[in-house]
Amino acid sequence: MRFDHETLGQRVRFASGQARESLAAEIDLLGASRVMVIAGQDERELADAVTADLPVVVHHDEVVMHVPADVADRAREVAAQHRVDLLVSVGGGSTTGLAKAVALTSGVPIVAVPTTYAGSEATNVWGMTESSKKTTGVDDRVLPRTVVYDASLMLSLPTGMSIASGLNALAHCVDSMWAPRADPINAALAGEGIRALNRGLPAILDDPRGLDGRERALYGAYLSAVAFASAGSGLHHKICHVLGGMFDLPHAQTHAVVLPHVLAFNVPTAPGAGERLATAFGSDTAVAGLAALRERVDAPKALRDYGMQESGIEPAARAVVEAAPADNPTPVTVDNITALLHAAWEGAEPR
Rank of each mutant, 00 (worst) to 15 (best):
A264L: 02
S233W: 13
N168W: 08
A280D: 00
A273C: 15
A344G: 09
A264G: 01
E121L: 06
P180S: 13
G193P: 07
V226P: 08
K238L: 02
R351P: 09
A103C: 01
A69P: 05
R209F: 02
P202T: 02
V138H: 10
A229K: 13
A24Q: 11
G312L: 10
D175S: 15
A190W: 09
A118L: 10
A32G: 05
A217F: 06
P109W: 00
A286H: 12
V63E: 03
T105F: 03
P208L: 07
N266T: 06
V12R: 08
V332E: 03
G97P: 12
G193R: 11
L201Y: 01
V57C: 05
D207V: 03
T269N: 04
S131L: 01
G91P: 03
L218K: 11
P250W: 11
R296V: 08
S165D: 09
H255G: 15
E310V: 14
F265N: 00
G234E: 14
M128T: 14
A196H: 10
L170D: 08
L249C: 14
A15S: 08
E26Y: 06
A190K: 10
E215M: 06
I38L: 03
H342G: 15
T338D: 14
H251R: 15
V63A: 02
Q18V: 09
L201K: 00
A316F: 04
I163S: 04
A316Q: 05
H241Y: 12
A317P: 12
G137L: 04
P315Q: 12
P68M: 10
S283D: 09
A299L: 05
P55L: 04
M154H: 12
I313V: 15
G92E: 04
V142W: 01
G312P: 13
F281I: 02
A164G: 13
A122F: 15
S311W: 01
A291C: 02
P250N: 13
A324H: 02
G282P: 03
G9Q: 12
G282Q: 09
P329F: 04
P109Y: 00
V50D: 08
D327F: 02
S132H: 09
S233D: 11
S22K: 07
S131W: 04
L249W: 06
A278M: 05
T7R: 15
A344F: 01
R214A: 06
G307V: 05
T330W: 02
Y222H: 14
V67C: 11
S89T: 11
D42N: 03
Y306K: 12
P268F: 01
M308C: 07
S106V: 02
P202D: 04
G97C: 07
S165A: 11
E121A: 06
M161F: 03
R181W: 15
E310H: 12
V111N: 00
L170S: 12
A339C: 10
D298A: 14
A317F: 10
I185K: 12
R44Q: 05
P329E: 05
R199M: 04
D61I: 00
